[in-house]
Every structure is written in structure tokens, then in C-alpha cells.
Design a protein around this nucleic acid. Sequence first.
DNA 1: AAAGTGAACAACCGCGTCCGC
DNA 2: GGCGGACGCGGTTGTTCACTT
Length: 201
Amino acid sequence: MMRAPCCDKMGLKKGPWTPEEDHILITHIQKYGHQNWRALPKQAGLLRCGKSCRLRWINYLRPDIKRGNFSHEEEETILKLHGILGNKWSAIAARLPGRTDNEIKNFWYTHLKKRAERSQMQSMSNSTSFPLEKAQASCSSEAEIRMAQVAKDASNATTTSNEKNPPIVGVGFYSTEASNGCNEIDEEMEFWYNLFIQTGH
DNA sequence: AAAGTGAACAACCGCGTCCGC
DNA sequence: GGCGGACGCGGTTGTTCACTT
């Protein structure tokens, strides 16, 4: 199928948004809403493509956006949800009110990825005394199975396209818990299971 | 003070899916 | 049921800024 050209149209501005453009976009959306992103820039008198407007609004101009540093709780939540959901940034963002998928994605790649990798390396070295595979094999609890199902459902509910992402395997931060035994994993699973239930999935 | 380097963040791009015609 | 426009998502790139040499 032929894809309609979007941002490559001649005459459309690219690059950083100016305060004036932000003001125009905010005013227009507050007045008329955003039923049609494609038509919006023309109606508002912006030399931007609809995609660019949408991104700007969703990631920075929405009134409910929470700016500033991530709290420790938010960090932990991202780490855990990423372990469950993988790179489903929109699904993760849905569990963090005021945070956007782009913000979380950036935060992951600049901060948390290294932490998760360190954690994984640590678990690798620990695995000589207590192999992860062994732990996982013996810990394939009912809670774990439920958790996988819930995570899958939650992911499907919030996003539809994602064949590209690898299967969700909690090797990263879960592995450290794995080395401590099954009970903690079960508790962890139960916690996140309950969280999903409470949030409606 | 200038150059180099890496981290952090903003924005763009391509693709898959949805949905109306 | 097929087509095509629009939207949303995730990956990637570009830019800015802070820090080091």
C-alpha cells in the first residue's frame, strides 16, 4: 500500500518548536480539540505536519504532563514493568500518570538500561552457585503463569502492533530475586498481578 | 580558553494497525 | 472484502549542555 507523504511535504517546518508555535497549538486544541491531527496544523495556521503537532502535544504540551525528575518509585515501577512488558513504552506510560512513552523511553535508555544490565551481569556471576535456569524451572509457579497472562493481556489492551519486540522474559532484575529463592518471586508476581487487577486489566 | 566526549532530551521516521468508505 | 487515509508506537537520529582534558 502506498503511504501518504507526511512530513516530507515541502514548506513544512521541522526541528525544535518555538514558544509561539506552542502557544498557537495549545490555544487551538483548547478551543477546538484535536479530532483530526492531519487537518489541525492547517486550521491552526501552523507550518507543521499533523504528526509533529500530535507528538508535541502528547509529549510536552498536554496539561496533565508531569515534568521533572523521576522519583525512586517511578524508577522501580519502570524497571519492573519493563521486565514484564518489554519495550512496550506506551503500556508502561499508561501505568505512570503524567509520564509519556517518549519520556520513559529516553529515561530507560539513558539511566535504567545500564542499571538493568548491571543487575543482569550480577545475576550471571551469581548463577555459578545457583543457576538461573534451575531457579526458573523450579519456580514456574502459578503466580508466574498468571502474571505472564496478565502482562500479555495488558499489553494487548494498550497497544496492538508489536511483532518486533522480543518475548517478555524477566531475566533482568528478576534474576536477582531468583537467586534469593522462589518465595520472593511469587510475592513480586502477586504484587504486580494485584496492581494490574486494580488498574483494570 | 578551546576542543573533545558523553549524557540527556527533543524530534523525526518508518511501519503496523485501525477504521471509514 | 479491498483500499487508502489517519493514527499510534517504537526505534533512531539530531541537538544541546555539562563535564573533562
